[in-house]
């Protein structure tokens, strides 16, 4: 006879589910069948450096609110993980990676913008590197195939009815911390916590998103919806609540040296934070190497 708590057991089984999801990822039907999919599976203390990075960054920029201003979607995802870990519900994190710059098809199809695969590889060696989320240039067909493989991973998680969401944000964090070698991009696919809604209809968003903040995000990103008369050089902009009683606000496009300086400065701060946390990941990788050697003769 045995007895076990249902939620705790379901949480433990996320590892088993991750194995099935990874099988779907590796066996996805591809256009080229030449994508060398890579993946890592981690949770608990091996996952923590990813959260540490955001926390070190917050300390350096003056708090969590300032961190939100650097890259809000990244902070949203961080918060979901932080709360899950604090509740003892750390997700099992799948890191899905691929080297999309390995243009070894020889099709010379031109979709990447270069006349030949060789020219694309040359450009990668000479001028390639990291953009905001991933490195490039990439073979268009490898990008597409990686999408199919990632979709198969997502579909497997969906079929198993496990809470999940594929994210570029924490893929970038993993990439910056060097969790995987020989890849041009990583996407993060968390499995769990064991609950209905965690990454959609996020319960954690209530901690950071006030109605005022949501209004600010929407008005800044979609101003055309609030502009009053689209004929002025500086059109007046409506707001939430009795905006007509407040001083009129105007929309105008132009440089913002202060904000540009803020972002430039934080690029360096981010780099410093990465260098601070990276030794932890190096230690984890050494542990992984030893383990893999035992698993794969």
């Amino acid at each position: 006879m045995a007895i076990v708590d249902g939620r705790a057991f379901a949480h433990e089984q996320l590892w088993h589910a991750a194995g099935l999801v990874l099988n779907a990822y590796y066996k996805a039907p591809l256009v080229t069948s030449r994508l060398d999919q890579k993946a890592l599976l981690l949770s608990g203390e091996d996952f923590m450096p990813m959260l540490d990075l955001i926390e070190v960054l917050a300390n350096k920029v003056g708090g969590h609110e300032a961190t939100q201003n650097i890259f809000f979607p990244l902070y949203m995802d961080y918060l979901a993980y932080r709360v899950a870990v604090d509740k003892g519900q750390s997700p099992v994190m799948l890191l899905l990676g691929a080297n999309l710059a390995k243009a070894d098809l020889g099709w010379d199809c031109g979709a990447c913008g270069f006349a030949t695969c060789g020219e694309m590889m040359k450009h990668f060696r000479e001028q390639g590197g990291l953009g905001r989320m991933l490195a490039g240039p990439s073979c268009a067909w490898k990008s597409l195939d990686w999408g199919i493989a990632c979709d198969y991973a997502c579909a497997a998680a969906w079929e198993l009815n496990i809470e999940n969401r594929i994210e570029a944000t924490f893929g970038l964090v993993a990439y910056a911390l060097g969790y995987m070698d020989d890849v041009t991009g990583i996407l993060a696919l968390p499995l769990g916590p064991v609950t209905e809604f965690w990454y959609y209809n996020r319960p954690t968003m209530g901690q950071v998103l006030t109605p005022e903040k949501q209004a600010e995000i929407l008005r800044s990103n979609v101003p055309v919806h609030w502009i009053m008369f689209a004929g002025d050089i500086k059109p007046p902009v409506k707001g939430y609540g009795p905006w007509w009683e407040r001083p009129t606000e105007y929309a105008k496009v132009g440089p913002d040296p202060e904000y540009t300086e803020f972002l430039e400065k934080n690029k360096m701060v981010l780099l410093e934070a990465v260098m601070e946390v990276r030794p932890k990941v190096d230690a984890i990788k050494q542990k992984l190497k030893d383990k893999t050697e035992k698993m794969l003769p």
């Binding site: 996805a28 010379d108 597409l144 493989a149």
Partner: peptide, 29 residues
Amino acid sequence: AKTTLDGPLCQMFLHNLGYAIGSALWTAR
């Protein structure tokens, strides 16, 4: 367009097209 396909293209959308293809293939499977 001097090649079979008219590049460069936005690879974020190409990657996303992969997901659409994947879900279609999953249904067939």
